Computed example of a mutant assay.
Amino acid sequence: MKTVRLEKLTWVLIYGGIFIAMLGLWVIDDNAALGHSLSWGGGLAILVGVLMIWLRSRRGDAAELPDKETPR
């Protein structure tokens, strides 16, 4: 996976996780099961995003792999 694509996915997971977690906290009073599910799911997405930042820092620039695209 290219570094640029990895970085985009990382930030989508982090900001999407924040949005989903906040949505879960907002819904939790009306529907506890849905609210808790959204909050935990959002928290998990944030955790995966932070883990991807750490993995990217350990990877370095030498691990830049080209995408497997077919030439046309």
Rank of each mutant, 00 (worst) to 15 (best):
A21T: 04
R59F: 03
G49A: 09
W26Y: 13
M1S: 07
G41T: 04
V4K: 13
M22V: 15
G60Y: 10
W40F: 15
A45N: 02
G17P: 01
L44A: 13
G60L: 08
H36I: 15
L38R: 01
E64F: 06
V48D: 04
T10E: 04
L55H: 06
T10L: 04
I53E: 09
L51T: 10
D67F: 02
W54L: 14
I28F: 02
V50G: 03
R56Q: 14
L9W: 03
W11M: 10
G35Q: 11
G42C: 02
R5G: 04
W26K: 11
D61H: 10
I46D: 02
I18P: 01
S57G: 07
P71F: 09
A33G: 07
G24K: 00
R5A: 13
L25D: 11
Y15P: 03
L34W: 10
E7D: 05
E69T: 03
S37Y: 07
M1I: 04
L44R: 01
L6M: 09
L51A: 15
D61Q: 10
S37D: 05
E7W: 06
F19M: 15
I20H: 02
K68A: 08
G17C: 09
W54E: 07
D30E: 14
D30F: 10
A32C: 04
W54M: 09
I28A: 03
L34E: 13
A33H: 11
I14M: 01
N31I: 08
I28V: 15
W40M: 14
L13K: 00
L25N: 15
E7Y: 05
S37L: 14
K68I: 05
I46Y: 01
L44Y: 05
M52R: 10
A21G: 02
G60E: 10
D30I: 07
T10N: 06
G16V: 04
T10G: 03
E64S: 10
I28N: 01
G60T: 12
R59P: 03
G24M: 05
W11H: 14
M52V: 04
R58E: 12
A32M: 13
G43A: 12
K2N: 15
S57C: 06
A63M: 12
K68F: 09
A32G: 04
E7Q: 12
R5S: 12
G60V: 09
N31G: 01
G41W: 00
E64L: 12
I14E: 01
